[in-house]
Amino acid sequence: MSDTSGALVLFSGGQDSTVCLAWALSRFEHVETVGFDYGQKHAVELRARDEVRRNITARFPQWADRLGEDHMLEMRGFGAVAQSALTADRAIEMTEKGLPSTFVPGRNLVFFVYAAALADRRGLKTMIGGMCETDFSGYPDCRRDTLDAVQTALNLGMEQDFIIETPLMRLTKAETWGLAKSLGGEDLVDLVVRDSHTCYQGDREHFHDWGYGCETCPACELRAKGWNEWVAEGRPTLAA
C-alpha cells in the first residue's frame, strides 16, 4: 500500500466490512464507501450501512473528516441471474458442487468490476474488501488468489494501477474482533455488535452478546463462534 490519499471500501453493513471501514479510516486521508443492492433477502444490511456510518462519525471524531461519500449501486438484475439462498426462496444447505447454497456465483467478481468503475471516476486507487480466506463460508471468490487475478484483470482492462486490500484475509473471526478492539477500543466493538448486520435471515429482533441474528444461519454461527473464542481468550487486541 503506497498511496494513502484515498480508498473505496466495499461496505455491506456487516461485521467484516465495518471493521474494514475502521481499518481504512485509520490509514487513508479520504475514504468513500460503496454498497450493492443485488436483491439480497437480508436487505436490512443495507439499512445498517447508514447507521454504522452515522455512528462512526459520531463516536470517532478523529475519523469524521476522513469519511466521504457513500454510493449505492443497483444490481438486482445480477442477483436474479445468480440465484442463491441469499436472493431466492431456497434452503440454506450444501449443493451438489460442495458449495453452500448461500454462494452467489461471481458476486465478488462483479462487485469489484462495479467498484473499479466507480473508483476510476472518483480518482481512488485502493479498493478494500472484507473477504476472508481463513474463516469463511466456503466461497471461492473470497480467496486471495481469486482477488489477485481480479486485480490484474482490472488493471489490464482499465489501464489502472488499482490495489485490492483485504485486511481480514488471514484472520479468524476471533482475530477480527481483536482487530476491531485495536482500531477503536471497546467503543468500536460495541458499534460492531449493535449497529452492523451479518445474519442471512435479516433478524434484527434477537440480540446476543455478539449482535443481532437468528443464531442458526452460517453467518450467525461464524460470528458467534468467533466472539466466543475471542472472549475465552480474554478479548485480546490484534495489531492493526
Results as ranks from 00 to 15, higher is better:
A91V: 04
R121D: 04
A22Q: 08
T33V: 12
E215Q: 12
F103G: 09
E74L: 15
L8E: 12
T87R: 05
A22W: 06
K225E: 15
R223E: 05
E69R: 11
D135F: 00
L67Q: 04
L73Q: 13
A180E: 05
E29D: 14
V31P: 12
E221Q: 15
E165P: 01
A64G: 01
I164K: 07
E32I: 05
R143G: 00
H197C: 02
L10G: 10
A119L: 10
F162P: 08
P100S: 09
A149C: 10
E93N: 06
R76K: 15
M131D: 03
V189E: 05
F60E: 07
L238E: 10
A48N: 11
I164F: 08
G68Y: 01
A22Y: 07
N228H: 10
V192S: 00
A91T: 02
Y114M: 11
T102F: 10
D70K: 01
K225M: 14
D195T: 02
E133Q: 14
V104M: 08
E159L: 03
A116G: 08
L179F: 01
P167D: 05
G213W: 03
S84Q: 07
N55E: 14
R49K: 12
S17M: 03
T126D: 12
A64L: 04
A22K: 13
F60L: 14
P105K: 15
N108A: 05
I163W: 03
Q40R: 13
G178H: 06
G6A: 15
G226V: 06
T198V: 00
T126E: 09
G130W: 06
